[in-house]
């Protein structure tokens, strides 16, 4: 019986195993070590939700608390990566991207290109995203699409504990800057995770369910709702293929296109706002490259084009769920 741990424990284990394997791996961020005004002293926090807890004493001197200055410490992590370390910096909420975007998209993402391939920037930026945590408009956004837009960044969006561990190990070993998106609602999700170390290559989609009627592509937390919806559709005789791209950059186009060529019907599920989203990106890709195979208009299931509401009732309506996905599946299936 394989061991089950949470998404959060899987991330902690990946950090721990890579820090043990490679002395150049360091962890840094707000409250990553001591926190609570006691920098590095008692491992009190381990990040705002405790993801890095325990690493401080296991790897002395390599888990660093930073000031509340994303522009400073994200820049420091990028600089350290250019100078031989493999920093894993924690941007507490992806919503804070705005204050350190230059360091990410205009510096880290460009070095390899602008220095003719002679520079590498092996930095990982771990960051929490997503709604459902009653954290309101400034702490709940789903901004992986913004990073995906930028050449030079790799963008990872794990949907389960197994993928979280293997993709984070791959992220740390990768020589390019990687944005590692952790959905805060998934932290407590349990799953089978090998104790041994393993890396999942980027750009390799996971096919969670095979089917010949409808292709459902979903990102991050939405993968789990898509699986739920596909199971419900199956009871109505509709067989869905559920695909988790795992990384939005690079994107495993072949697996998506091959599936749509088989089913002819596509639903894309994305927790982001609909404009310039992964949903519109994947819909565009399929419309262009598999147009001849399509038997129905592509359905996009996304959040609405509004900020994430603070009201519990409105937030619950905001996040796409299994019922909406199932309705989209039935709609594309029944289209004539």
């Amino acid at each position: 019986m394989a061991r089950k741990i949470t998404y959060q424990q899987a991330i902690n284990e990946a950090l721990d195993q890579e820090m043990s394997r490679d002395p150049t791996v360091i962890v840094m961020g707000e409250d990553n070590a001591g926190g609570a005004g006691a920098p590095g002293e008692d491992d009190a926090w381990g990040g705002v939700l405790g993801v890095t807890k325990g690493l401080y004493h296991k790897h002395p001197g390599r888990v660093l608390d930073t000031p509340i200055s994303e522009s400073g410490f994200i820049g420091a992590a990028v600089g350290a990566a250019c100078n031989g370390l493999r920093p894993v910096a924690e941007l507490m909420f992806v919503d804070f991207l705005g204050v350190c975007l230059d360091q990410i998209f205009n510096q880290a993402a460009k070095f390899r290109y602008m220095f003719g391939g002679k520079a590498k920037t092996p930095v990982v930026i771990r960051t929490m995203y997503g709604a459902g945590f009653r954290a309101a408009a400034q702490h709940s956004q789903c901004l992986y699409n913004i990073f995906t837009h930028i050449p030079g960044l790799k963008v990872v969006v794990p949907s389960n504990p197994y993928d979280a561990k293997g993709l984070l190990i791959q992220s740390i070993r990768d020589n390019d800057p990687v944005i590692f998106m952790e959905h805060k609602v998934l932290y407590t999700m349990q799953g089978e995770v090998p104790e041994e170390s393993y890396a999942i290559p980027f750009g390799e989609a996971n096919v969670l369910r095979e089917g010949h009627d409808v292709t459902v592509v979903a990102i991050g937390r939405m993968v789990n709702f898509a699986s739920e919806a596909a199971a419900a559709a199956q009871k109505k005789g509709v067989h869905c293929e559920v695909i988790d791209p795992r990384t939005t950059s690079p994107l495993d186009e072949d697996t998506l296109l091959e599936s749509v060529e088989k089913t002819g019907r596509l639903v894309v599920v994305d927790e982001s706002h609909p404009r310039c989203s992964m949903a519109s990106d994947i819909a565009g890709l399929v419309a262009q490259k598999a147009f001849g195979a399509l038997k129905a208009p592509i359905e996009q299931v996304t959040a609405p084009h509004v900020p994430v509401p603070f009201s519990d009732a409105l937030e619950d309506l905001y996040v796409p769920g299994a019922a909406r996905i199932e309705a989209a599946i039935m709609k594309v299936r029944e289209y004539r």
């Binding site: 197994y162 293997g166 090998p194 041994e196 170390s197 393993y198 890396a199 999942i200």
Partner: peptide, 8 residues
């Protein structure tokens, strides 16, 4: 695949 990804 999960087996083949294990370190070593």
């Amino acid at each position: 695949l999960k087996y083949k990804r294990l370190e070593g």
